[in-house]
Simulated scan of single mutants.
Amino acid sequence: MKSLRLNERIASQRDKELVRLRLAEKAEKVLESLVNHWEGLCRFIQNPDIPMDNNIAEQTLRGPVVGRKNYYGSGSDWSMELAAWFFTVLASLKIWRINQKLWLKCYLEACIVNERKPSEDLSQWLPWQMDESRLKELRIHDPPG
């Protein structure tokens, strides 16, 4: 495979650079890191389905991380736990392409009907436990073309 040959050439050049006299300290650290992480880096070549970055995870965490000190009440443990729970719920709904505002509206209305308490049975609120008709009802619908 072409990519494996290129992989071998890169490793060869890396090793040549490492034995050079008077190699700059920063360059040496980079090359040593390349040696230490070589096996993991090669996995991207062997399996191109593995993304080379984790931008999806980083972007998902961006809102909570940036906002954690800016949200009112975040100085208490209970509000931190509530925020973490809420961000997890919203991220799950997004992954399942569920309209977050509609889901939240329906959930809060159901709590009101249930004497302002959450339902004992959460299956109608968890996307992976919903039946297809419930998912369709709550899904984000693209506007007609």
Rank of each mutant, 00 (worst) to 15 (best):
M1T: 11
S3Q: 13
R9Q: 14
R14M: 12
D15G: 02
E17T: 08
L18R: 05
L18D: 04
V19F: 01
L21T: 14
A24T: 05
K26Q: 13
K26G: 07
A27M: 08
A27V: 11
K29G: 07
V30R: 04
E32L: 10
E32C: 12
L34Y: 01
H37W: 05
W38Y: 09
G40C: 09
I45W: 00
Q46S: 08
P48C: 07
M52P: 03
D53L: 13
N54Q: 09
N54T: 04
A57L: 15
Q59N: 13
L61P: 01
R62F: 03
G63T: 07
P64V: 10
V65E: 03
V66K: 00
V66I: 15
R68D: 11
N70I: 10
Y71W: 15
Y72A: 15
S74Q: 12
S76H: 11
E81C: 04
L82G: 02
A84T: 14
S92E: 01
S92R: 01
L93H: 09
N99M: 09
N99G: 10
Q100F: 04
W103F: 02
L104N: 03
K105G: 06
C111W: 07
K117C: 12
P118T: 11
L126D: 03
P127G: 02
E132N: 03
R134K: 14
L135R: 00
L138H: 05
L138K: 00
R139P: 01
D142H: 01
